[in-house]
């Protein structure tokens, strides 16, 4: 085998340290003027791809891919600053929101064009929490999949993936080509260093639109309503131990 051709799909989402707010019409989360950054699970995917190369696994190329609004190119630049070799940006307008199936259909064609033999995706994006894209893609490509990886080792075309399951770990082995989705403990993503941010500006970034791909990408679900969780009831302050015991009794905790 000549080497790994890794595809890393990434998504621009509302920064996870920002508290999202539902819009007035209750149709979606407010995105205007809100800080966005790379989906944290996708940072892990990029990091893992770069580490494979640093571990001297023969990596031919790391391609970062994002389907999203024009601003999604910011996260692609970040991915390239972290070590991806080039980027592909499918510009998707606000009105043509993609569902996981749509994204997977795009990725299926990109995998073909790029001759990728390993796709590393985040296990989910923190905005939609769908946890589907990797799995649907594996189905479309008819490739094996190892989801929620916490450790990845590669020897030749044999890949060993450790995944955390309830109460323990599970170790899987599969041959390339393969789909991997990443989980939190896989690695610790690096900072984008200034020299690499400069270099990333000169790396190639291909711009496409949905028209460059075949298939039906239209949404099949309609969002009826988005609501915030009910506000937490404020606690009460008790003045002293007697007050606390009284309160606990009142609540039936004692």
């Amino acid at each position: 085998m000549s080497g790994l051709r890794i595809l890393v799909p990434i998504k621009r989402v509302i920064d996870y340290a920002v508290k999202p707010r539902v819009n007035r019409a209750q149709t979606a989360v407010e995105t205007a003027n809100v800080k966005h950054s790379m989906n944290p699970f996708d940072e892990l995917s990029i990091e893992e791809a770069v580490r494979l190369r640093e571990r001297k696994v023969p990596v031919e190329e790391i391609v970062a891919f994002s389907a999203g609004p024009p601003k999604a190119q910011d996260v692609l630049r970040t991915a390239m600053a972290m070590g991806a070799d080039r980027g592909i940006h499918v510009v998707v307008e606000e009105s043509e929101q993609l569902e996981p199936l749509g994204v997977a259909k795009l990725l299926q064609q990109v995998v073909g064009q790029e001759k990728s033999n390993l796709v590393i995706l985040g296990k989910q994006s923190i905005d939609d929490d769908a946890n589907q894209t990797g799995q649907v893609l594996a189905g479309l490509l008819n490739w094996p999949q190892a989801t929620q990886a916490s450790k990845v080792t590669i020897e030749g075309d044999s890949v060993t993936v450790t995944r955390e399951v309830d109460g323990g770990v599970e170790t899987l082995r599969a041959k390339l080509p393969l789909i991997i989705t990443t989980d939190l403990r896989l690695n610790e993503p690096r900072y984008a260093s200034l020299p690499n941010i400069m270099k990333a500006k000169k790396k190639p970034l291909a711009k496409k639109t949905l028209k460059d791909y075949e298939g039906d990408f239209s949404a099949r679900l309609k969002t009826l309503k988005v609501t915030e969780p009910p506000p937490r009831k404020g606690g009460v302050k008790v003045d002293d131990v007697d007050g606390m015991i009284g309160k606990l009794k009142e609540l039936g905790a004692l």
Partner: peptide, 9 residues
């Protein structure tokens, strides 16, 4: 050398 924060964290 330097780094630029890419997100809130």
């Amino acid at each position: 050398d330097g780094v630029l924060a890419q997100d809130q964290t």
